[in-house]
């Protein structure tokens, strides 16, 4: 994040909107993509997917948790409609993420906006909102650099994981699956760093509320739906209780 402090010394509304800056800002997340991608490839092989199918799935779906669930349901023999519906619900959170990022990129053409949306993931969302929080501004070239680097790394990692799958029987024991949670944790902290003390207290109270609401929701709905509903409720409480 040294780059951001460097950028902040210039005018905060006029940051570097270059493809290469996007690539650079993506690099800290690559370890996460590589870990999860490799783990996915290994698990997919044990779920009877071929390496070509692993490649295709990461090109077409490009969503970590959905790809894992795809494998789980496929090996369990779930019907196609169940697999597609579950994938939809698991990835519905991207709607909120896109809605958060999109108002900052309306000055670009519809086609480019479709491109930004198509390649939006949890991680690129996290990096983009962290940059927005710090600099109040993101550019299209930067976004493309970030997105395309993440996309290509993901496809390569999943495919290599599939190729290695025959030699590594148990990816879980390597702790690679925890990379995703660790990355969310770091992105969360980065988002809370620059918001100021009084606002921070507000946010910490909201997070405490989130813990309670999530706990209750988990009795009634699957985890991914609980994440979505809790986010909507707590963001609403946030607006209502802000000073």
């Amino acid at each position: 994040m040294n780059l951001n402090t460097q950028v902040n010394t210039h005018q905060s509304t006029n940051t570097l909107d270059t493809f290469s800056q996007g690539v650079k800002d993506c690099i800290p997340t690559l370890l996460g993509y590589i870990s999860i991608g490799l783990a996915f490839g290994v698990i997919a092989i044990t779920s009877d997917l071929s390496v070509f199918e692993i490649f295709l799935l990461s090109v077409l779906v490009y969503a970590g948790s959905a790809q894992f669930i795809f494998c789980g349901l496929y090996i369990a023999g779930a019907s196609f409609s169940v697999i597609i519906l579950t994938t939809f619900i698991v990835n519905l959170r991207h709607f909120l993420m896109s809605l958060t990022v999109a108002p900052n990129l309306t000055r670009y053409s519809p086609l480019r906006n479709i491109g930004f949306g198509t390649l939006l993931t949890d991680e690129t969302f996290g990096v983009a909102v962290t940059k927005l929080m710090k600099e109040k501004h993101i550019g299209g070239n930067w976004m493309d650099g970030l997105n395309i680097t993440a996309y290509l790394t993901w496809i390569a990692s999943c495919t290599i994981g599939g190729l290695m799958g025959k030699w590594i029987p148990n990816a879980e024991s390597w702790g690679l699956d925890f990379a995703l949670i660790a990355m969310f944790c770091a992105l969360l902290v980065l988002n809370l760093v620059d918001i100021g003390k009084s606002k921070l207290m507000h946010y910490l109270k909201l997070i405490a509320l989130l813990v309670i609401i999530l706990y209750v929701l988990l009795y009634f709905v699957p985890g991914h739906l609980a994440v979505l509903i809790a986010t909507v409720i707590v963001a609403t409480v946030g607006v209502v209780t802000e000073k």
Binding site: L99, F125, G223, V227, G238
Partner: peptide, 26 residues
């Protein structure tokens, strides 16, 4: 404006929710 203000809470809320959800066993 109220929707834009609401969206400002989404990053922290959704990242927290993803982390916290993984800390529970349902």
């Amino acid at each position: 404006d109220v929707v834009l203000r609401w969206l400002k809470y989404i990053p922290v809320c959704i990242l927290s929710a993803l982390v916290i959800e993984s800390l529970f066993n349902a």
